[in-house]
């Protein structure tokens, strides 16, 4: 083998190449993300300014856009705080039902043997991928039959029901990860199966519960399509219906109001998102891959 020389300086070349590559990566990411950044920036700028020159440059500071907080922009519209409360009620309702139902079901499906177990398991897993939105028309009929149209309860039940397979799937993953030894030793220590669930298993799946709760809350808070389809009564409006009405009424004019209400609506989402984005990423990935 011929003696090769170690030539100094080749790293410099490599690093220069790397630097160029890296800089172009950053440039690409920044350019691609620009619409998103500008869009969300507008929520803030647009909400506090009268008029934007050239679409982007703020002229003057104003809080006029926020008058909806005490004075509805249209006499036919409900009080914003009632709407706010409705939104919260919807989100909390979805969260509560979805978490309780799917956690208990997931425990049974993950840990207990009963006839029909594999069928139930298979159907939840299949339903997890099923596009629920195609069922909208039939859901409308069902809610009408149950007398739940124009009621937030109808939307809560539908949204929670549609999220249950997802919840079961994620929670089953968490339950599956708990070693059987722990549950077995609880049983040997004299706990009943229910005590085991309540005192031993539940504390261990808290992170999973937190994850699906955050997910359910965000989904409930943002709910749009079922809401505008099933609920027309202004007394049951949420912020989605409110903004939908703004878009409908002032389609291309009052951007200040649109930005202000949107920001008002987005505020809890942004807060939640900043606090839990890592969790959300994990569940978005984990929920797809099976809760791990």
């Amino acid at each position: 083998m011929a003696q090769r020389k170690f030539t100094p300086g080749s790293l410099e070349r490599e690093r220069r190449k790397q630097r160029i590559l890296r800089v172009s990566m950053y440039l690409f990411l920044i350019a691609a993300s620009l619409p998103i950044v500008i869009g969300y920036l507008w929520l803030f700028v647009g909400a506090f300014t009268g008029n934007l020159v050239y679409g982007l440059v703020p002229q003057s500071f104003t809080v006029e856009n926020w008058s909806f907080l005490w004075d509805p922009p249209s006499p036919a519209w409900p009080d914003i705080w009632r709407t706010f409360f409705n939104t919260f009620f919807l989100a909390a309702g979805v969260t509560l039902i979805m978490v309780v139902v799917s956690t208990s079901a997931a425990y049974v499906v993950s840990r207990m043997y009963f006839p029909g177990r594999s069928m139930i398991l298979a159907s939840t897993l299949i339903l997890h991928a099923f596009p629920a939105i195609t069922l909208l028309i039939a859901l409308y009929y069902i809610l009408r039959t149950l007398g739940l149209l124009d009621s937030l309860w109808g939307v809560i039940l539908v949204r929670a029901g549609l999220m249950v397979p997802f919840g079961i799937w994620v929670m089953k993953g968490f339950f599956d990860d708990i070693p059987w030894d722990i549950e077995m030793s609880a049983l040997i220590d004299g706990a009943t199966r229910f005590q085991t669930f309540w005192k031993v298993m539940l504390p261990l799946v808290k992170p999973g519960i937190a994850a699906i709760a955050v997910f359910a809350f965000m989904a409930g808070w943002a709910e749009y399509i079922f809401l505008v389809t099933f609920v027309r009564d202004p007394n049951s409006w949420t912020l989605s219906s409110y903004i939908n009405a703004i878009i409908g009424n002032y389609r291309f004019t009052n951007y200040g109001l649109l930005a202000a209400v949107s920001l008002f609506y987005m505020f809890p989402v942004l807060l939640f998102f900043l606090l839990t984005q890592k969790l959300l990423m994990k569940v978005t990935v984990g929920g797809i891959k099976g809760g791990r």
Binding site: I36, G39, Y40, W42, L43, G46, M218, W221, A222, E223, Y224, I225, L239, S240, I243, N244, I246, I247, R251, F252, Y255, L258, A259, S262, Y265, M266, V269, F273, Q277, L280, M281, T284
Partner: peptide, 17 residues
Amino acid sequence: LLPRFTPPVVYAAIWLW
């Protein structure tokens, strides 16, 4: 990821602007 968790009406409002 933010747009995915933004309420659809708000996301739409941003684009309409």
